[in-house]
Write a protein that binds this DNA or RNA. Structure first.
Length: 276
DNA sequence: TACCAGGTAAAAA
DNA sequence: TTTTTACATGGT
C-alpha cells in the first residue's frame, strides 16, 4: 500500500467519472473500482484509500502521471472562492465538491484523442480510439494498454486507420500530426494564443481541438472551448433562458468566469451530464 | 429507419 | 466572402 496524499477538496469518485462515462477507455481502464494505466513498461493501479489514493507502484516515474490522471494540481480552492460569487457555479461546486478534471499525460495522446472525438458522439469516439490503442498501442498491462507512440502512428497508413473506423480525412489528420516536425513539448512554454496559433497550422486541428489541448493537456486556467457542442448545451441550459446560445455568445460569457474558465467549463459540463 | 453526436476543410454559391 | 456538404461510427 503506497498512499499518495491528495489536496482538499478531492473526490475520487467524481474525478474519475470521465474514465467510465462513455465506454471503456483502453488506455485508462476502470476495473474493480480502480483506475489502471501503463506508465513506462509498468501498469499502475490507482484506487481510493483513506487519506488519499492508493497507488501501486508509486515512485518518481509514476507520481507525475497519476497527479495528471486525477487532476490533483488544479487550484480548486481558488476556483471555489471565485465560484462562490457566481450563483450557478456556487450551486455546482457544492453539488460536485472535489471534482477535478483529468489531464492527458501526453500531448500527442491529447491531440489524437480530440481528433477521434471531432463531430461524433463520445461513445463512438471511445470505440474508435479503443481500436486504435489495440492495434498500435505499446506495452500491454494486465488491464490497460499504453497509448500508441507518435512514431507508431507516423509509420501507419491511412487505409489501416480507416479500417479502425476513422474517416479517411481523420486518418490523414492523425498521420500528419504524427509526422509533423512540431515539438509538442515545447508548446508548454508559450502563451495560450500562441499555442493555438501553432496548433491550427496543422491539418485537422481547428480552434476546438486547440482549445481542448489548452484545457486538458496544458491545464491553462483560462482555456474555454466556446465552440464545443457540450459546453454550448451546458451554458445554454444554465444561462440561456430557454434558448440555445451561439458559439459567440458562449465565448462572450466566458468572461464571467475569469480567471477560471477551464474549471468552470468542466463543472458546467459535469452539471449537464449529471442533471445537477 | 433516420438522425444526431464534445468539428474540419473543401466545394459551391 | 459566406454557406453548404462530406465524413464514419455508435446509440436511440
Amino acid at each position: 500500500m503506497a498512499l499518495l496524499g491528495v489536496p482538499d477538496p478531492y473526490s475520487f469518485e467524481l474525478s474519475t467519472g470521465r474514465y467510465r462515462a462513455f465506454g471503456v477507455d483502453r488506455a485508462n481502464v476502470w476495473y474493480d473500482g480502480a483506475l489502471h494505466r501503463v506508465v513506462g513498461d509498468r501498469e499502475v493501479r490507482i484506487a481510493a484509500a483513506p487519506g488519499g489514493v492508493d497507488v501501486e507502484p508509486l515512485d518518481a516515474e509514476t507520481e507525475p502521471v497519476v497527479r495528471r490522471l486525477l487532476g490533483l494540481d488544479f487550484d480548486l480552492q481558488g476556483f471555489e472562492r471565485v465560484a462562490a460569487g457566481e450563483p450557478v457555479l456556487a450551486r455546482l461546486v457544492a453539488q460536485l465538491r472535489g471534482l477535478r478534471p483529468p489531464l492527458a499525460p501526453d500531448p500527442f495522446e491529447s491531440l489524437v484523442t480530440s481528433i477521434t472525438a471531432q463531430q461524433v458522439s463520445l461513445r463512438s469516439a471511445f470505440a474508435v480510439r479503443g481500436r486504435l490503442i489495440e492495434r498500435y498501442g505499446g506495452y500491454r498491462g494486465a488491464h490497460a494498454i499504453a497509448f500508441p507512440a507518435r512514431e507508431a502512428l507516423a509509420a501507419a497508413a491511412e487505409n489501416e486507420l480507416a479500417r479502425l473506423g476513422f474517416s479517411r480525412r481523420k486518418a490523414g489528420y492523425v498521420i500528419a500530426l504524427a509526422r509533423s516536425d512540431l515539438d509538442l513539448e515545447d508548446l508548454a512554454a508559450l502563451p495560450d494564443e500562441e499555442v493555438k496559433a501553432r496548433l491550427v497550422e496543422l491539418p485537422g486541428i481547428g480552434e476546438w481541438t486547440a482549445d481542448w489541448f489548452l484545457a486538458r493537456y496544458l491545464a491553462r486556467p483560462r482555456a474555454w472551448p466556446a465552440g464545443d457542442l457540450g459546453l454550448r448545451k451546458a451554458v445554454s441550459r444554465f444561462y440561456g433562458d430557454g434558448r440555445d446560445l451561439t458559439t459567440e455568445e458562449v465565448r462572450a460569457l466566458g468572461a464571467r468566469f475569469e480567471p477560471f474558465q477551464n474549471l468552470s467549463a468542466h463543472y458546467l459540463l459535469a452539471g449537464l451530464l449529471t442533471g445537477a
